[in-house]
Amino acid sequence: MDQEYIKKWLSGTLTEDEQLEFQQSEAYRELQKLDQAIQSFKAPEMDVEKELHGLKLKPQAREIKANWWKPIIRVAAVVLIGVLLFQYYPVLTRKLAPSIEVVQASRGETRTFDLPDASQVTLNASSTINFRTKNWEGNRSLNLQGEAYFKVNKGATFTVETDQGTVTVLGTKFNVKSRNSYFEVVCYEGSVQIKSESYQEIIAATEMFRVVNGTLIRSRDLEIEAPSWVDQVSSFISVPYGEVLKELERQYDVKIESQNIDLQQLFTGSFTHKDVKLALASITQPLNIGYNIGENQTVSLSGEAK
């Protein structure tokens, strides 16, 4: 009886009637006394805040564990940047690189290349072309120093600027030679406009326009379809001899020293680019000039003493 009630009392499941009945018993008074006395054994209160501050926690353990994702993010960022750079490398270089492209042919070589619109340019020896790659189709314009042969595709105006004048076409084949005081344009197809401060000319196919030392010359009915230098032969029609010698210097990368030679006399003829002896023979023999090939790419020419 007591046992049942004590169990129920412990778990707090006594009904009201049972509670009243139990309270009358001797066992209850004894339990009450015991229960009250036991309260004296309560565990001492703990100073929680003091204990909390007394905790000696290793901070670096927390650092590592709390930030486990940081190194992963760092690695991910590096990988991402790498991937993006790789992906956009062509775009970046196109944007960052200067938009001016320079093509050069050094002495003794010729060079053929395509412009952005697939127009073809062949550079003769010791010549340079530069042009803007940006918006090429809308503004076909380039700068030439030296000599070049153009095969221009149809499209917007195509302009070649030189120190001695501007050559404008709409789509044709033509050769421009601009060397010091020598300026020559030959048109092989269509028509070409030539403009400078002192003159403005339009030449048609098979026509040639030339300015030498300020003298304008026009000639017609040239029976050639492309400049001969493209086929490794330099041809001249009534060109001052000095200009012929300079062309030979450019094609063979040699230095010519001349003695007793009239550099203004006009020369008509040609020389090959393949054999320097043959070339020298073909430009000296007709004029009765002797030549001697020396060291260090030097050639001496000497005319007959007068």
Binding site: V48, E51, L52, A66
Partner: peptide
């Protein structure tokens, strides 16, 4: 899961449980 590593969360857990654990 890594919240207990936050000082504030850890302190809260301490305040809630320290006395019971001590008892």
């Amino acid at each position: 899961p890594s919240d207990v590593c936050k000082e504030s969360v850890f302190q809260e857990i301490f305040r809630k449980n320290a006395q019971d654990l001590h008892d």
